[in-house]
Nucleic acid binder design. Structure first.
Length: 844
DNA sequence: ACTTATATCCTAGGG
DNA sequence: TCCCTAGGATAT
């Protein structure tokens, strides 16, 4: 039944392109006069941004800082997925009980992330300091909650110096037994009456409210945090738990909602003719209460209806909204029901228009995009709002938000970005929300082992470095290292190399890996430093964080976790120590849950294929069209190294890859020489040869640069733009840089488009499948990592391959690549040990 | 003296 | 004078 609803909601056939269907719906809605005028069609938006709740937490600090707030409502997952000791943030009790010694332990347990390791080496004071902060934090935020939530509540209310106070009042129906302090501390100032707290609604009023909700022409939503701030507040309290959700129900789609506050009182009696603002309290008290149970159910209905409703939903940072609702009321499998959510997120819209503006606040966006309309429509009400948004009521802000969003939508259309917005970015929002909600199991013992190993090893290396340097110094400090290497040891004078690497701006001698490599025969220190620097490991998904349209991840940055194991070995003894060797592969820490297997699907050479398509270079095309079975980089390696393809090592291949992309994107001969490990002369020769063979690459670059020069921006395959004003700069250096960026963007941005499209289609397919349960765990640019039920591997693998490779042509987007897309699939219980999947024949 | 913000450098990931 | 990221550490 849920399934039916879902399909009805999404309303498209999964084999056809769902995205464009959504786009068409929205477009037709807009065409028919107003975006909001949609009748039956669902359009919603969503914006994704910084999330507070990563799936995996490496550090104790991070853990309490972030997860604290959302009192993890996942007892289930705790029980379900601890086969190997999954890292669960929900273990608050144990957190609160941690002693200093245990903190050390916990840090160890978060070990893999190498950014933690150095902490183990830090002075005790650092740890103590952190411990102190941690305790303070816990005291402030946890302890109280359990003990007397009443006090806490009162505190939040009375201390809420935030301008956006939730004034709760019931405009609908009766105010029932409002005995709580809420009512008392309520301020009944001017706008307060507009906000209706649904807790105080009687049964009849609730029914009425649902009716109003269902008839609303549009919904504007924002999360409210415990401190009274909302998603629209300038400073987002990142550690603050959610208190409730405010929804503005727009009864009609008039373009100037801000008129309403002025006339609201006059129109006010009739529900259906005016806008209403409701406050939905979501915070649950620890005590069991039948009343609360009922309220909970009611709230759940409202929220899920919002996520699946057919009218437009506007939300700033919609991803957080989706995730919050799922965390609060989502249960097993309910994630499928939000798959079709399309919320209009002004942040995503603004980012498409200006991708370099990466994290604008609500206020920023209003100032940037709405100022004109404010001036143009100088109603007095408006003026107040524009002058000091922060000090206004939530309801007013929501109305402004609505206007802002409509304005951005118009701009998107004007810029030709509307389809991209609807088909790619908006459907991605629930996907990211769902992905963030899915925890990845961690092999805890392995983690601890690794951490201890790394910590001890780094300590030893530091001591060694001090010894051979003859003095103590901060091993992480490039400045101090520079002084030792060149000031004290004068290694640069001993080197035969003429052009030693230098830092960019200050033109100092570099201490980079390249430099250390060239010095390592002259003194033991460089080698030690190189070894010490091994590995830095560092998820919240940011949809609007890049200029190229890619996603980025943080905390941990799962896209940056070492792929290949790092070897810690020391053949040469130091101070007569025994020799030891150990390998660490961070990705092996990520393991699938019991009964599940990871399946990774990555596009092979996607950027090169796109380049082949865009440039139409015959040689490049031939490479992909003919030798479809072989690996292109291995083929190229064997060609110009003149060795049989079987003899091409992994290292060779990696180098070739690096070289090819470098050259394609405009690397100079020096860089190439360094990369290739040859003389500049040889590099020059190689460069000429390469560009000669693939001649049209240069033509393509010229074309792109020309277009950029005349238009001021470049666009990807699906119309994503990147403005590059410096393309016209007088400064040669700046202009050249912009030119390289232009060329790179077209290819990288197009690849990002395709990867997102793949995510969306696979997600939609799973969501509409009655049987498939595969969950997306991570996206590493061209690679999608899924957690799949063991028994579903064959079916899902076939589905993934079919969808991804079918992106070669997408009629609805007028996309038709001249080259085939190739997908590599691999499976395994651990992310670090994936083996290529041999697919059984007969996948249709 | 103490904390905080910014800039720079380096390395991991991905093409 | 390949491009795009996150993150850590230091120095100021």
């Amino acid at each position: 039944m849920k399934m039916e609803n879902y399909e009805a909601c999404v309303g498209f056939d999964l084999c056809e392109t769902p995205l464009s269907t959504v786009a068409q719906k929205i477009m037709s809605a807009m065409r028919s006069g107003d975006l909001m005028a949609s009748r039956n069609e669902g359009e919603r938006t969503k914006t994704s941004e910084v999330t507070k709740k990563p799936s995996v937490h490496f550090s104790v600090l991070a853990e309490h800082e972030k997860t604290q707030p959302l009192e993890t409502k996942n007892p289930k997952s705790l029980i379900n997925q601890t086969p190997r000791g999954s890292v669960e943030l929900s273990s608050q009790p144990s957190i609160t009980k941690l002693s200093a010694g245990q903190v050390q332990n916990s840090i160890s347990s978060s070990g893999l992330s190498s950014y933690l390791i150095p902490q183990c080496d830090q002075e005790a004071s650092v740890l103590q300091n952190r411990e102190h902060k941690r305790k303070h934090f816990l005291k402030e935020n946890i302890g109280k909650e359990d003990k007397d939530s009443l006090n806490l509540k009162r505190k939040y209310i009375t201390c809420s110096n935030s301008p956006e106070k939730a004034s709760k009042h019931t405009a609908l129906g009766k105010e029932t037994d409002g005995t709580e302090s809420w009512q008392n501390s309520e301020d009944t100032r001017a706008l307060g009456k507009q906000l209706c707290d649904v807790r105080y609604l009687g049964d009849l009023a609730k029914v009425q409210l649902m009716d109003v909700l269902k008839q609303a022409a549009a919904l504007v939503v924002t999360l409210m945090y415990k401190d009274g701030s909302t998603q629209l507040s300038a400073k987002q309290a990142l550690t603050c738990p959610v208190k409730g959700i405010v929804v503005l129900l727009k009864s009609h789609v008039g373009s100037s909602p801000l008129i309403l506050p002025a006339h609201g009182g006059a129109l006010g009696k009739d529900f259906t003719s005016t806008d209403h603002c409701i406050y939905i309290h979501t915070e649950q008290s620890p005590f069991w209460d039948p009343k609360q149970e009922a309220h909970s159910l009611f709230v759940r209905n409202i929220l899920f209806w919002t996520l699946r409703c057919k009218c437009p939903v506007v939300c700033f940072n919609a991803k957080d909204f989706v995730r919050t609702v799922l965390q609060l009321y989502g249960e097993d499998g309910s994630w499928k029901h939000v798959a079709g959510f399309v919320g209009l997120d002004p942040r995503v819209a603004a980012w498409l228009i200006d991708p370099s503006d990466t994290a604008p606040s609500f206020e920023d966006l209003v100032a940037k995009h709405l100022e004109k309309s404010i001036i143009v429509k100088p109603s007095s009400t408006f003026n107040d709002a524009s002058i000091n948004i922060v000090s206004q009521n939530v309801c007013v802000n929501l109305k402004i938000l609505y206007d802002l969003t409509m304005d951005l939508c118009s701009k998107l259309k004007a810029y030709g970005l509307w389809q991209l917005f609807c088909t790619l970015e908006l459907p991605l929002i629930p996907i990211l929300a769902v992905m963030e909600n899915h925890k990845i199991s961690i092999d805890k013992e392995e983690m601890e082992r690794t951490s201890a190993l790394l910590g001890a090893h780094l300590k030893k290396l530091e001591q060694e470095a001090h010894f051979v340097a003859g003095e103590q110094f901060l091993i992480m400090s490039n400045n101090q290292l520079r002084e030792i290497l060149f000031g004290k040891l004068k290694l640069h004078l001993l080197s035969q190399r003429k052009h030693l690497p230098r830092t960019g701006l200050q033109n100092q001698l570099s201490t980079s890996e390249a430099m250390l490599n060239s010095l390592q025969d002259l003194h033991p220190l460089p080698k030690i430093i190189l070894e010490y620097r091994q590995g830095s490991i560092s998820s919240t998904w940011n949809q609007t964080g890049t200029v190229t349209g890619r996603l980025s991840a943080k905390h941990p940055n799962i896209q940056g976790i070492s792929k290949h194991p790092i070897q810690i070995s020391r053949p040469r003894n130091f101070k007569g120590k025994e020799e030891e060797t150990a390998t660490i592969s961070p990705r092996t820490l990520f393991v699938s849950s019991e009964g599940y297997t990871f399946l990774a699907a990555d596009f092979s050479q996607i950027e090169l294929r796109i380049l082949a398509h865009l440039s139409g270079d015959p040689e490049l095309l031939k490479l992909f069209q003919e030798s479809e079975r072989d690996d292109v980089f291995s083929t190229l390696t064997s060609q110009w190294k003149d060795i049989p393809i079987e003899r091409v090592t992994h290292m060779d291949r990696e180098q070739t890859k690096k070289v090819v992309y470098s050259v394609v994107y405009g690397a100079g001969k020096e860089r190439l020489a360094a990369c290739l490990g040859v003389t500049v002369l040889e590099a020059t020769h190689f460069l000429e040869q390469f560009l000669q063979k693939y001649k049209k690459i240069k033509d393509f670059a010229q074309t792109v640069i020309g277009q950029c020069h005349s238009a001021g921006y470049v666009a990807s395959i699906l119309g994503r733009r990147r403005p590059l004003p410096r393309i016209c700069a007088q400064n040669q250096q700046l202009r050249a840089q912009a030119e390289r960026q232009a060329v790179n963007f077209v290819v990288q941005g197009s690849a990002a488009d395709l990867c997102k499209l793949a995510m969306i289609r696979i997600f939609a397919a799973v969501a509409t499948s009655p049987t498939l349960t595969a969950r997306l765990v991570a996206q590493i640019h061209d690679e999608l990592l899924f957690e799949v039920e063991d028994t579903q591997i064959p079916e899902f693998a076939a589905l993934v391959r079919r969808i991804m490779e079918s992106l070669q042509q997408v009629q609805t987007l007028e996309l038709q690549l001249q080259v085939p897309l190739k997908v590599n699939l691999s499976i395994g219980r651990s992310w670090g040990h994936l083996t290529p999947l041999q697919e059984t024949l007969g996948s249709a």
